[in-house]
Amino acid sequence: MSAPRYKILVVEDNPSDVELLRLAFKQAGLDCELTVIGDGGDALDFVRRHSPADQPPDLAILDLNLPRRDGVEVLGGLRANPALSEVPVAVLSSASLPRERARVEALRIRRYIQKPSELDEFLKIGGQVKELLRQEK
């Protein structure tokens, strides 16, 4: 397989959704390596400790509802780290409250994906992410 291997940071506390994402990527034929962090606090630590020596991820997929620290804080930490500030971010969130949604839309993000409740819709996310990564290259 000559397709580039993508590194994707997934900050998502729900393993079920992580499984669905893997399935979606697999079905979309996306060759990727996922770094999954299931806790807002850990994710914030991760993005702060990330050094320029480490290879930055090609994409960060953030859930908003996270234990300890929420996705917006994680995003703030990511943007604050020069080594990561250019990483494209997609927010993958459940049907969010309008207030949160307004908060997120004010941030510089690539895409806001609402977690669909239909399986087929969810699986389409694989194709959308693949398209996004191709644009970034």
């Binding site: 729900n14 079920s16 509802n65 049907a95 669909p116 409740s117 239909e118 399986l119 969810f122």
Partner: peptide, 11 residues
């Protein structure tokens, strides 16, 4: 409540 329900539906 929508969250777990979504998981029920999709799974």
């Amino acid at each position: 409540l929508q969250e777990p329900l979504r998981i029920v539906t999709t799974y």
